[in-house]
Nucleic acid binder design. Structure first.
Lengths: 135, 135
DNA sequence: CTTGACCTTGAAGCTTACTATAAGGTCTAA
DNA sequence: TTAGACCTTATAGTAAGCTTCAAGGTCAAG
């Protein structure tokens, strides 16, 4: 069956070989086998697994969460509830972060609008606001 | 004049003494003087400066940017344009991050909605989506 | 004069997801 | 057989913003 070396698989996915070794240490991906000389050999499932990891990362999951998702995926009789919980926890976290960032952005926009960008810092309303004794 | 030790100032601001030493290394805050035995002594300006730092951090500025803002603040004849530029760069960056996070969140919400949270992972649409060969 | 709280410095550790380096073994082609 | 590309391992470095540690000096109270 067609297995590939770590460098080949890494290149196919646009990753470095070190990344795959790192994923192995983190428990995300193991080679299907080792050659007699110790070289890691990966089968087709490995590429699929790496794409899973990449999609999950793009959705904001940490490697630790992805490891759990993969473990759940590997055990088809596990409960789907845990998957949903992880997903909802991500959503909640993202909502919080988005809200925080939006508050920052709005505050900065008010400040930016108040500042002409001309003149000296002595009369800069942005610095004045940061220096002010309120809140 | 009333100067305070590092521990006193730190406690007043709800920070650790180590944080103030760290800020000093980063060029954000220096003690007004040292005692004969080498103890850092801070004046009232230091507390003001720490509040400046805290407000700027709350708006998303990095310590490096804050160091520059403080330097501009310390030099009242510097150009306000730089302050505005830094502010606008922050806004742009925040907008990008917010967009990215919102994309993630929306994708996750679609997935969460598709999953009842009941049954086995074998039939979990979230895992199926992560495992799918599209895009 | 001793206890204990506080201060000093430099250096290391924490988190996350890698990336790089060193020192060495393996494999393929000419 | 030898060059060079690839693989192995363990270890260290990166960013950011701290926190912790070790070893020792200082200071006020009792």
């Amino acid at each position: 069956m067609d297995t590939v070396s770590i460098g080949t698989l890494a290149k196919d996915l646009g990753l470095g070989a070190g990344t795959l070794r790192y994923y192995e240490r983190r428990g995300l991906l193991s080679p299907a086998q080792r050659t007699a000389s110790g070289y890691r050999m990966y089968d087709r499932d490995a590429a699929q697994r790496l794409r899973f990891i990449r999609r999950a990362q793009a959705l904001g999951f940490s490697l630790e969460e992805i490891a759990e998702l993969l473990a759940l995926h590997d055990n088809p009789h596990a409960s789907a509830r845990r998957v949903k919980r992880l997903t909802e926890a991500r959503i909640t976290d993202l909502a919080t972060r988005i809200r925080d960032l939006e508050r920052m952005k709005q505050a900065l926009e008010v400040l930016a609008a108040s500042c002409s960008g001309r003149g000296q810092t002595r009369e800069c309303p942005i610095l004045a606001a940061l220096d002010r004794d309120d809140e």
